[in-house]
Amino acid sequence: MAQVMVAMSGGLDSTMAAALLVEQGHDVTGVHLKMADTPSGLPGKGCCTLDDARDARRVADRLGIAFYVWDFADAFAERVVEDFVDAYAAGRTPNPCVRCNERVKYAALMERALGAGFDRLATGHHVRLRTDADGTVHLHRPVDDGKDQTYVLYMAGQDQLRRSAFPVGEHRKSELRAMAAERGFVTAAKPDSHDICFIPSGDTAGFLSARLGRRPGPIVDVDGTRLGSHDGAYRFTVGQRRGLGIGGLDEPRFVTGTRGDTITVGRRADLAVTSVTAEDVTWTTAAPAPGQGGLTAQVRYHGAPLPVALDLDGDRMAVTFTGEQPLGVAPGQALVVYRDDECLGGGTITATAR
Protein backbone atom coordinates (compact mmCIF):
# COMPACT_ATOMS: atom_id res chain seq x y z
CA MET A 1 0.00 0.00 0.00
CA ALA A 2 1.35 3.41 -1.01
CA GLN A 3 0.62 6.86 0.33
CA VAL A 4 -0.76 8.68 -2.72
CA MET A 5 -1.68 12.31 -3.19
CA VAL A 6 -4.38 12.74 -5.82
CA ALA A 7 -4.82 16.06 -7.61
CA MET A 8 -8.60 16.49 -7.54
CA SER A 9 -9.80 19.14 -9.98
CA GLY A 10 -13.48 18.51 -9.33
CA GLY A 11 -13.97 16.76 -12.66
CA LEU A 12 -14.84 13.20 -13.60
CA ASP A 13 -11.32 11.98 -14.38
CA SER A 14 -9.69 13.02 -11.11
CA THR A 15 -12.73 11.71 -9.25
CA MET A 16 -12.21 8.26 -10.70
CA ALA A 17 -8.44 8.43 -10.23
CA ALA A 18 -9.03 8.87 -6.51
CA ALA A 19 -11.77 6.23 -6.37
CA LEU A 20 -9.75 3.59 -8.22
CA LEU A 21 -6.74 4.10 -5.96
CA VAL A 22 -8.87 3.86 -2.81
CA GLU A 23 -10.41 0.64 -4.13
CA GLN A 24 -6.93 -0.72 -4.79
CA GLY A 25 -6.17 -0.28 -1.10
CA HIS A 26 -3.88 2.76 -1.18
CA ASP A 27 -3.77 5.46 1.49
CA VAL A 28 -5.18 8.38 -0.54
CA THR A 29 -5.25 12.10 0.18
CA GLY A 30 -7.03 14.52 -2.14
CA VAL A 31 -5.70 17.98 -2.96
CA HIS A 32 -7.48 20.67 -4.96
CA LEU A 33 -5.33 23.42 -6.43
CA LYS A 34 -6.68 26.96 -6.34
CA MET A 35 -5.03 28.49 -9.39
CA ALA A 36 -7.36 31.22 -10.63
CA ASP A 37 -10.39 33.14 -9.39
CA THR A 38 -12.67 31.83 -12.12
CA PRO A 39 -16.37 32.60 -11.49
CA SER A 40 -18.72 29.72 -10.72
CA GLY A 41 -21.46 28.50 -13.01
CA LEU A 42 -19.47 28.73 -16.26
CA PRO A 43 -20.04 26.02 -18.88
CA GLY A 44 -16.92 24.31 -20.11
CA LYS A 45 -14.84 24.97 -17.03
CA GLY A 46 -13.72 22.07 -14.87
CA CYS A 47 -10.64 22.85 -12.82
CA CYS A 48 -10.55 26.35 -11.40
CA THR A 49 -13.96 27.47 -10.12
CA LEU A 50 -15.41 27.42 -6.62
CA ASP A 51 -17.98 24.90 -7.88
CA ASP A 52 -15.14 22.58 -8.88
CA ALA A 53 -13.55 22.83 -5.44
CA ARG A 54 -16.87 21.98 -3.83
CA ASP A 55 -17.39 19.00 -6.14
CA ALA A 56 -13.90 17.70 -5.32
CA ARG A 57 -14.63 17.98 -1.59
CA ARG A 58 -17.94 16.13 -1.99
CA VAL A 59 -16.17 13.28 -3.75
CA ALA A 60 -13.45 13.14 -1.09
CA ASP A 61 -16.11 13.04 1.66
CA ARG A 62 -17.89 10.19 -0.12
CA LEU A 63 -14.61 8.28 -0.41
CA GLY A 64 -13.74 8.99 3.22
CA ILE A 65 -10.33 10.46 2.42
CA ALA A 66 -8.52 13.52 3.71
CA PHE A 67 -8.91 16.58 1.49
CA TYR A 68 -7.07 19.89 1.28
CA VAL A 69 -7.13 23.00 -0.89
CA TRP A 70 -3.71 24.40 -1.72
CA ASP A 71 -3.28 27.92 -3.03
CA PHE A 72 -1.10 27.85 -6.15
CA ALA A 73 -2.56 31.10 -7.52
CA ASP A 74 0.67 33.09 -7.38
CA ALA A 75 2.70 30.35 -9.05
CA PHE A 76 0.00 29.92 -11.70
CA ALA A 77 -0.16 33.66 -12.41
CA GLU A 78 3.61 33.96 -12.72
CA ARG A 79 4.48 30.73 -14.51
CA VAL A 80 1.44 30.29 -16.75
CA VAL A 81 -0.59 33.49 -17.17
CA GLU A 82 2.35 35.89 -17.44
CA ASP A 83 4.15 33.46 -19.73
CA PHE A 84 1.01 33.33 -21.91
CA VAL A 85 0.86 37.12 -22.25
CA ASP A 86 4.61 37.48 -22.83
CA ALA A 87 4.56 34.79 -25.52
CA TYR A 88 1.78 36.48 -27.48
CA ALA A 89 3.53 39.83 -27.12
CA ALA A 90 6.62 38.25 -28.71
CA GLY A 91 4.63 36.80 -31.63
CA ARG A 92 4.44 33.22 -30.34
CA THR A 93 1.40 30.99 -29.82
CA PRO A 94 1.79 29.23 -26.46
CA ASN A 95 -0.16 26.26 -25.13
CA PRO A 96 -1.07 27.20 -21.54
CA CYS A 97 -2.07 23.61 -20.69
CA VAL A 98 1.46 22.44 -21.48
CA ARG A 99 2.96 25.24 -19.39
CA CYS A 100 0.56 24.53 -16.52
CA ASN A 101 1.56 20.87 -16.38
CA GLU A 102 5.23 21.66 -16.86
CA ARG A 103 5.41 24.34 -14.19
CA VAL A 104 2.46 23.95 -11.81
CA LYS A 105 -0.20 21.25 -11.98
CA TYR A 106 2.14 18.30 -12.44
CA ALA A 107 5.76 19.31 -11.81
CA ALA A 108 5.29 21.75 -8.90
CA LEU A 109 2.65 19.58 -7.25
CA MET A 110 4.89 16.52 -7.62
CA GLU A 111 7.66 18.35 -5.79
CA ARG A 112 5.26 19.42 -3.03
CA ALA A 113 3.79 15.91 -2.69
CA LEU A 114 7.17 14.22 -2.37
CA GLY A 115 8.36 16.88 0.04
CA ALA A 116 5.31 16.16 2.21
CA GLY A 117 6.24 12.48 2.40
CA PHE A 118 3.88 10.96 -0.16
CA ASP A 119 5.09 8.01 -2.24
CA ARG A 120 3.30 9.04 -5.41
CA LEU A 121 1.31 11.76 -7.10
CA ALA A 122 -1.78 10.66 -9.01
CA THR A 123 -3.77 12.73 -11.51
CA GLY A 124 -6.69 12.22 -13.86
CA HIS A 125 -4.57 12.49 -17.01
CA HIS A 126 -5.49 10.04 -19.75
CA VAL A 127 -2.08 8.39 -20.21
CA ARG A 128 -0.60 4.98 -19.40
CA LEU A 129 2.70 3.95 -17.85
CA ARG A 130 4.65 0.79 -18.69
CA THR A 131 7.71 -0.26 -16.65
CA ASP A 132 10.62 -2.38 -17.91
CA ALA A 133 12.37 -5.02 -15.81
CA ASP A 134 15.22 -2.54 -15.21
CA GLY A 135 12.79 0.05 -13.81
CA THR A 136 12.63 2.33 -16.87
CA VAL A 137 9.15 3.85 -17.12
CA HIS A 138 7.57 4.55 -20.52
CA LEU A 139 4.77 7.04 -21.17
CA HIS A 140 2.09 5.70 -23.54
CA ARG A 141 -1.16 6.89 -25.05
CA PRO A 142 -4.28 5.79 -23.11
CA VAL A 143 -6.89 3.19 -23.92
CA ASP A 144 -9.23 6.00 -25.03
CA ASP A 145 -7.11 7.64 -27.74
CA GLY A 146 -9.75 10.35 -28.18
CA LYS A 147 -8.83 11.63 -24.70
CA ASP A 148 -5.05 11.28 -25.06
CA GLN A 149 -3.10 13.73 -22.85
CA THR A 150 0.46 12.55 -23.43
CA TYR A 151 1.02 15.76 -25.42
CA VAL A 152 0.80 17.92 -22.29
CA LEU A 153 3.06 15.61 -20.24
CA TYR A 154 5.90 15.22 -22.72
CA MET A 155 8.29 16.97 -20.31
CA ALA A 156 7.92 14.33 -17.57
CA GLY A 157 11.26 12.70 -16.72
CA GLN A 158 12.07 9.34 -15.21
CA ASP A 159 12.21 10.61 -11.63
CA GLN A 160 8.70 12.01 -12.02
CA LEU A 161 7.21 9.08 -13.93
CA ARG A 162 8.46 6.58 -11.34
CA ARG A 163 6.52 8.50 -8.67
CA SER A 164 3.35 8.99 -10.74
CA ALA A 165 0.06 7.14 -11.08
CA PHE A 166 -2.47 7.64 -13.88
CA PRO A 167 -5.22 5.10 -13.19
CA VAL A 168 -7.85 6.46 -15.61
CA GLY A 169 -5.62 5.88 -18.63
CA GLU A 170 -6.60 2.22 -18.55
CA HIS A 171 -10.29 3.06 -19.14
CA ARG A 172 -12.44 4.67 -21.79
CA LYS A 173 -14.24 7.88 -20.84
CA SER A 174 -17.67 6.29 -21.28
CA GLU A 175 -16.62 3.52 -18.90
CA LEU A 176 -15.44 6.05 -16.33
CA ARG A 177 -18.78 7.88 -16.48
CA ALA A 178 -20.65 4.64 -15.89
CA MET A 179 -18.36 3.74 -13.01
CA ALA A 180 -18.83 7.18 -11.42
CA ALA A 181 -22.61 6.94 -11.76
CA GLU A 182 -22.61 3.50 -10.13
CA ARG A 183 -20.69 4.96 -7.18
CA GLY A 184 -23.02 7.95 -6.87
CA PHE A 185 -20.42 10.65 -7.51
CA VAL A 186 -21.69 14.16 -8.20
CA THR A 187 -19.19 14.44 -11.08
CA ALA A 188 -20.58 11.47 -13.05
CA ALA A 189 -22.37 13.59 -15.66
CA LYS A 190 -20.07 16.60 -15.47
CA PRO A 191 -18.89 17.74 -18.93
CA ASP A 192 -15.21 17.91 -19.83
CA SER A 193 -13.46 21.21 -19.29
CA HIS A 194 -12.38 23.17 -22.32
CA ASP A 195 -11.11 26.60 -23.31
CA ILE A 196 -8.49 28.48 -21.29
CA CYS A 197 -9.39 28.34 -17.60
CA PHE A 198 -8.09 31.85 -16.79
CA ILE A 199 -10.07 33.43 -19.67
CA PRO A 200 -13.63 32.47 -18.63
CA SER A 201 -15.19 34.70 -21.29
CA GLY A 202 -13.38 32.82 -24.06
CA ASP A 203 -12.30 36.20 -25.50
CA THR A 204 -8.55 35.68 -25.77
CA ALA A 205 -8.05 38.80 -27.91
CA GLY A 206 -9.88 40.92 -25.35
CA PHE A 207 -7.90 39.41 -22.48
CA LEU A 208 -4.63 40.22 -24.23
CA SER A 209 -5.75 43.66 -25.36
CA ALA A 210 -6.43 44.69 -21.76
CA ARG A 211 -2.84 43.80 -20.89
CA LEU A 212 -0.91 44.72 -24.04
CA GLY A 213 -2.86 47.72 -25.34
CA ARG A 214 -3.11 48.94 -28.91
CA ARG A 215 -0.11 48.08 -31.09
CA PRO A 216 -1.05 48.95 -34.69
CA GLY A 217 0.75 47.56 -37.69
CA PRO A 218 0.29 46.47 -41.32
CA ILE A 219 -1.16 43.29 -42.81
CA VAL A 220 0.82 42.27 -45.89
CA ASP A 221 0.58 39.47 -48.43
CA VAL A 222 3.45 37.01 -48.82
CA ASP A 223 4.83 39.17 -51.64
CA GLY A 224 4.88 42.25 -49.38
CA THR A 225 1.76 43.92 -50.78
CA ARG A 226 -0.05 45.83 -48.06
CA LEU A 227 -3.64 44.60 -47.66
CA GLY A 228 -4.77 46.27 -44.47
CA SER A 229 -3.89 47.14 -40.88
CA HIS A 230 -4.50 45.83 -37.38
CA ASP A 231 -4.49 46.99 -33.75
CA GLY A 232 -2.21 44.32 -32.35
CA ALA A 233 -0.32 41.35 -33.78
CA TYR A 234 -1.09 39.41 -30.59
CA ARG A 235 -4.72 39.22 -31.78
CA PHE A 236 -3.74 36.84 -34.57
CA THR A 237 -2.43 33.29 -34.72
CA VAL A 238 -0.86 31.38 -37.59
CA GLY A 239 -3.57 29.66 -39.61
CA GLN A 240 -6.27 32.20 -38.70
CA ARG A 241 -8.66 33.13 -41.54
CA ARG A 242 -11.53 35.03 -39.95
CA GLY A 243 -11.36 38.50 -38.50
CA LEU A 244 -8.48 39.75 -40.67
CA GLY A 245 -10.41 42.77 -41.92
CA ILE A 246 -9.34 42.31 -45.52
CA GLY A 247 -11.59 41.47 -48.46
CA GLY A 248 -12.05 41.67 -52.22
CA LEU A 249 -9.33 39.08 -52.85
CA ASP A 250 -9.38 36.23 -55.37
CA GLU A 251 -9.34 33.62 -52.57
CA PRO A 252 -9.21 33.57 -48.76
CA ARG A 253 -6.04 34.56 -46.94
CA PHE A 254 -4.66 32.98 -43.78
CA VAL A 255 -2.15 34.31 -41.27
CA THR A 256 1.20 32.72 -42.13
CA GLY A 257 3.35 34.53 -39.60
CA THR A 258 4.23 37.66 -37.67
CA ARG A 259 7.38 39.73 -37.56
CA GLY A 260 7.35 42.55 -35.07
CA ASP A 261 4.07 44.37 -35.63
CA THR A 262 3.69 43.08 -39.20
CA ILE A 263 1.16 40.33 -39.95
CA THR A 264 1.82 38.28 -43.09
CA VAL A 265 -1.02 36.43 -44.81
CA GLY A 266 -1.10 33.96 -47.69
CA ARG A 267 -3.12 31.29 -49.40
CA ARG A 268 -3.86 27.96 -47.77
CA ALA A 269 -0.93 26.32 -49.56
CA ASP A 270 1.39 28.86 -47.90
CA LEU A 271 0.58 27.35 -44.49
CA ALA A 272 2.34 24.05 -45.23
CA VAL A 273 5.47 23.52 -43.12
CA THR A 274 8.33 21.26 -44.20
CA SER A 275 10.40 21.45 -41.02
CA VAL A 276 10.56 23.07 -37.59
CA THR A 277 13.18 23.81 -34.97
CA ALA A 278 12.38 23.09 -31.32
CA GLU A 279 14.34 24.05 -28.23
CA ASP A 280 14.26 23.22 -24.50
CA VAL A 281 13.88 19.60 -25.61
CA THR A 282 13.49 16.89 -22.97
CA TRP A 283 12.99 13.12 -23.19
CA THR A 284 10.87 10.81 -21.06
CA THR A 285 13.48 8.04 -21.30
CA ALA A 286 16.41 8.75 -23.62
CA ALA A 287 16.79 10.63 -26.89
CA PRO A 288 16.12 8.56 -30.03
CA ALA A 289 19.22 7.11 -31.67
CA PRO A 290 20.60 9.07 -34.67
CA GLY A 291 18.78 8.07 -37.82
CA GLN A 292 16.12 6.10 -35.97
CA GLY A 293 13.05 5.51 -38.11
CA GLY A 294 9.42 4.98 -37.25
CA LEU A 295 9.06 8.31 -35.45
CA THR A 296 6.08 10.64 -35.60
CA ALA A 297 5.39 14.06 -34.13
CA GLN A 298 2.40 16.16 -33.13
CA VAL A 299 2.37 19.93 -33.29
CA ARG A 300 -1.06 20.32 -31.62
CA TYR A 301 -2.79 18.82 -28.60
CA HIS A 302 -5.21 16.78 -30.72
CA GLY A 303 -3.24 16.93 -33.96
CA ALA A 304 -2.48 13.94 -36.12
CA PRO A 305 0.90 12.23 -35.60
CA LEU A 306 2.98 12.82 -38.73
CA PRO A 307 6.14 10.93 -39.86
CA VAL A 308 9.34 12.83 -39.09
CA ALA A 309 13.12 12.63 -39.15
CA LEU A 310 15.09 14.21 -36.30
CA ASP A 311 18.44 15.97 -36.13
CA LEU A 312 19.40 16.37 -32.47
CA ASP A 313 21.83 18.82 -30.92
CA GLY A 314 21.66 18.84 -27.12
CA ASP A 315 18.37 20.37 -26.02
CA ARG A 316 17.64 21.54 -29.56
CA MET A 317 16.27 19.54 -32.48
CA ALA A 318 15.47 20.08 -36.14
CA VAL A 319 12.44 18.11 -37.27
CA THR A 320 11.68 17.37 -40.93
CA PHE A 321 8.24 16.12 -41.92
CA THR A 322 8.89 13.20 -44.25
CA GLY A 323 5.27 12.63 -45.32
CA GLU A 324 2.26 14.86 -44.89
CA GLN A 325 3.14 18.44 -43.98
CA PRO A 326 1.25 20.15 -41.16
CA LEU A 327 -0.52 23.43 -41.80
CA GLY A 328 -0.34 26.61 -39.76
CA VAL A 329 2.41 25.72 -37.30
CA ALA A 330 3.46 28.61 -35.07
CA PRO A 331 6.46 29.30 -32.83
CA GLY A 332 5.49 28.70 -29.23
CA GLN A 333 3.57 25.50 -29.88
CA ALA A 334 4.84 22.26 -28.41
CA LEU A 335 6.26 19.60 -30.73
CA VAL A 336 5.96 16.13 -29.22
CA VAL A 337 7.72 13.03 -30.58
CA TYR A 338 6.29 9.50 -30.56
CA ARG A 339 7.32 5.96 -31.44
CA ASP A 340 4.15 3.99 -32.06
CA ASP A 341 1.97 4.92 -29.06
CA GLU A 342 4.87 5.85 -26.76
CA CYS A 343 5.54 9.52 -26.00
CA LEU A 344 9.31 10.03 -26.19
CA GLY A 345 9.51 13.74 -25.35
CA GLY A 346 9.44 17.08 -27.09
CA GLY A 347 10.17 20.77 -26.96
CA THR A 348 8.93 24.25 -27.86
CA ILE A 349 8.87 25.28 -31.52
CA THR A 350 11.04 28.33 -32.13
CA ALA A 351 11.13 28.46 -35.95
CA THR A 352 9.39 26.96 -38.98
CA ALA A 353 10.39 26.52 -42.63
CA ARG A 354 8.15 26.34 -45.67
Rank of each mutant, 00 (worst) to 15 (best):
A289P: 02
T282L: 08
L271A: 02
R300L: 15
E342N: 00
T282A: 12
V308M: 04
Q333L: 14
T277D: 14
D311M: 00
G346E: 05
L310K: 06
G345P: 10
G346M: 07
A278M: 14
H302S: 15
E279H: 14
V276D: 01
E324N: 05
A318D: 13
D341R: 13
L306Y: 12
P305V: 05
A304D: 13
G303F: 06
M317F: 08
A297K: 01
A272K: 02
G347P: 12
T285Q: 12
D280F: 04
D311I: 06
D280C: 01
G323T: 06
A272M: 13
D280E: 11
A353M: 01
V273F: 01
P305K: 05
Q333N: 11
W283Q: 02
V337I: 14
T350I: 09
L310I: 11
R300E: 14
P305D: 01
T284S: 15
L271K: 13
Q298Y: 03
V273I: 15
Q333P: 04
P307R: 00
G293R: 12
T322Y: 12
V308W: 07
T296D: 02
P288V: 13
G347T: 05
C343F: 09
V281I: 09
T284G: 10
P290Y: 05
G347W: 12
V329N: 04
P331F: 15
M317L: 14
L344D: 07
S275W: 09
G345Y: 08
I349G: 02
D340P: 03
A286G: 08
F321K: 04
G291M: 10
D311Y: 02
M317C: 11
L306G: 00
D340C: 08
V319I: 15
Q325S: 11
Y338W: 12
D340W: 13
